[in-house]
Write a protein that binds this DNA or RNA. Structure first.
Length: 588
RNA sequence: GGGGGCGUAGUGUAGUGGUUAACAUGUCGGCCUGUCAAGCCGAAGACCGCGGGUUCAAGUCCCGUCGCUCCCGCCA
């Protein structure tokens, strides 16, 4: 071993011991006659001091080291003088007096600071990710991720789940996200697909009788990226037999509550997790993944303004839309520019405009005031609970547009007014999603969750007549405005499954071609079952207080899906293409 | 596919169309025996992402392009 101790563990009780440490040179302070080296390893920092009196050769070597050199130091632990104790360090009470300094490896000057978490262009961090991962922010996040996954594995094991691996090379299905395809060398013209999730496989494991399966599963989706979306990401994928929805929700609630207490005890959670229907989430927050850390709920003014003469309101009502508003507390003094930004934000969500009313001491101000009666203004204030000093934002438009615009405004105010407690993890469940969504482009019904989702029993009867009336037994876990997990109770009755395929427009033959293996498996005694798949990256991101999953992934890709360090994707040799029976088209 | 933001020494930033592009930090050299953001002295280091255009004159204005990023579409 190159070391007897880590750089994080020496304490006053070790004084007098001869120890050997090894690590990276964090910083060096050369006083000529006296050299201080801050040595760093994964466990922490320890100050090394060398002087010509104590060990002339060690001192000579110490004077030549530079930042990020890898060195080994043999020396004696000493107490620091009382006034020189560094209270910010775990090892701040001691130092190691060098007897021997061995340079194990040199280092170029790094392209950015390793010893402090100063801002650096993210492209540069990603190109030198191995250096970025040395910095304390990334070390903290990666170790937190480890502790999170470790906790989850222990928890799942303790609750009777079996970890089972499923293949990466699987079958492409036209539903859902775009697949990453892998060409087959052995079968010219045929392709595997990397799994978007192990959905089908985990259901087959239920048919196989494992009853409780889980996996820390990598998933692949070839869609455009966001701060919370990478082309490959990790889920806690699990499935349970002989359970109903609430069995799964209760289990996941315990899992996340205990996880937070174990790995980030400084964070708080709501208890119990609020459970809202999809309809209620949209009604109150305008979103199916609401940030529940703060109020500012949407107020519905459609009924109370039904007789308004204001053209904007009348148009919305006549077109079957809605008039809804939110109250931004203390924002009545917003400048013209700020109001323009709010309007632009609403318009980006498809709204035709935004009605702003500033409730000031000298009256209500806003471009629309002259079109509204005194009593209408009073009704708006009373209905939304707006008082002096507040800014009311109203959107009158089609229902989804109103929800989208006000939800975006609500989140903008959250950030501007710092309404959300950063130490609160407001988990909540969204339930009773619609079973089907109308696909305008394809002129057909799509499964809102996926085609194996069980309809809510009391809504199933209407399925063939009116797909919009069918709710599904699907559920999402949300937290602080992010969708953290999706899941559902699955269909285990082949007759219901065929009905669903009929609504989706798959004739029996096509359904068998696409999902024949599933249909067949389900004919051999499929138990009632359901599951869920919480995203590990987003979970760790929230635990770490980051707002980007790249910060909790060791080697992430850029927003353009590029690995800047390895330079992937990259061209391949003609020979490789030939083996795979691939021919590039002219335009490439 | 569409829209916004950013791009200036290694890093982080400043820079009214007008001399030799500034500051901090880092790097290198010298001095220095109690520092911990060590200090003091000195030096090197950027043709301003790239290409084109406007202009007597472009880091600055315009167009294009590349990269990073955020958002919309997309993500069963």
């Amino acid at each position: 071993m190159f070391k007897t101790h880590s750089c994080g563990e020496l304490r006053p009780e070790n004084v007098g011991q001869e120890v050997t440490l090894a690590g990276w040179v964090n910083r060096r302070r050369d006083h000529g006659g006296l050299v201080f080296i801050v040595l760093r390893d994964r466990a922490g920092l320890t100050q090394i001091v060398s002087s010509p009196e104590a060990a002339p050769e060690a001192h000579e070597a110490a004077a030549t080291v530079r930042g990020e050199y890898v060195i080994q130091v043999r020396g004696v632990v000493r107490l620091r003088p009382e006034e020189q104790v560094n209270p910010d360090w775990a090892t701040g009470a001691i130092e190691v007096e060098a007897r021997e300094v061995r340079i194990l490896n040199l280092s170029q000057t790094p392209p950015f600071y390793i010893y402090e978490d100063s801002a650096v262009d993210e492209g540069l961090r990603l190109r030198y990710r191995y250096l970025d991962l040395r910095r304390s922010r990334m070390q903290r996040n990666i170790l937190l991720r480890h502790r999170t996954v470790k906790f989850i594995r222990d928890f799942m094991d303790a609750h009777g789940f079996v970890e089972i691996e499923t293949p990466f090379l699987f079958k492409s299905t036209p539903e859902g996200a775009r697949d990453y395809l892998v060409p087959s060398r052995v079968h010219p013209g045929k392709f595997y697909a990397l799994p978007q999730s192990p959905q089908q496989l985990k259901q087959l494991l239920m048919v196989a009788g494992y009853e409780r399966y889980y996996q820390i599963a990598r998933c692949f989706r070839d869609e455009d990226l966001r701060g919370d979306r990478q082309p490959e990401f990790t889920q806690l994928d699990f499935e349970m037999s002989f359970v109903e929805r609430d069995d799964i929700l209760d289990l996941v609630e315990v899992l996340f509550t205990e996880l937070v207490a174990a790995v980030t005890p400084q964070k708080r959670v709501l208890s119990p997790f609020p459970r809202l229907s999809y309809a209620e989430a949209l009604e109150r927050y305008g979103s199916d993944k609401p940030d529940l850390r703060f109020g500012m709920e949407l107020g519905d003014l459609t009924a109370v303004l039904s007789t308004s003469e204001f053209r904007v309101f009348r148009a919305a009502i006549e077109e079957g839309g809605q008039i809804k508003g939110i109250v931004a507390p203390g924002c009545a003094d917003y400048a013209r520019r700020q109001l323009d930004e709010l309007t632009a934000l609403a318009q980006k969500q498809g709204a035709r405009g935004l009605v702003t009313l500033a409730f000031r001491a000298d009256g209500v101000k806003g471009p629309a005031v002259k079109f509204l009666t005194e009593s209408e203004l009073a009704v708006i204030a009373q209905h939304l609970g707006a008082g002096e000093g507040d800014l009311v934002c109203i959107v009158a438009d089609a229902k989804p547009v109103v929800a989208g615009a006000l939800s975006a405004l609500r989140l903008a105010f959250r950030d501007q007014l710092q309404l959300a407690d950063p130490d609160l993890l407001a988990f909540g469940y969204v339930l009773d999603f619609p079973m089907f969504e109308w696909n305008e482009e394809g002129q057909r019904w799509d499964a809102a969750h996926h085609p194996f989702t069980m309809p809510r029993p009391n809504t199933y009867a209407a399925m063939m007549a009116d797909p919009t009336a069918v709710l599904s037994d699907a559920y999402d876990l949300v937290c602080n405005g992010y969708e953290l997990a999706s899941g559902s109770i699955r269909v285990h009755d082949p007759r219901i499954q065929m009905d669903i395929f009929r609504v989706l427009g798959y004739p029996e033959e096509e359904a068998r071609a696409r999902f024949g293996h599933m249909m067949e498996a389900f004919s051999y005694g499929a138990p009632p079952h359901g599951g869920m798949a919480p995203g590990i990256d987003r979970t760790v991101m929230l635990l770490a207080g980051e707002n980007n999953i790249r910060e909790v992934i060791a080697f992430p890709k850029t927003a353009q899906a590029v690995d800047l360090m390895a330079d992937a994707p990259s061209p391949v040799d003609q020979k490789q293409l030939d083996e795979l029976h691939l021919k590039l088209s002219e335009s490439e």
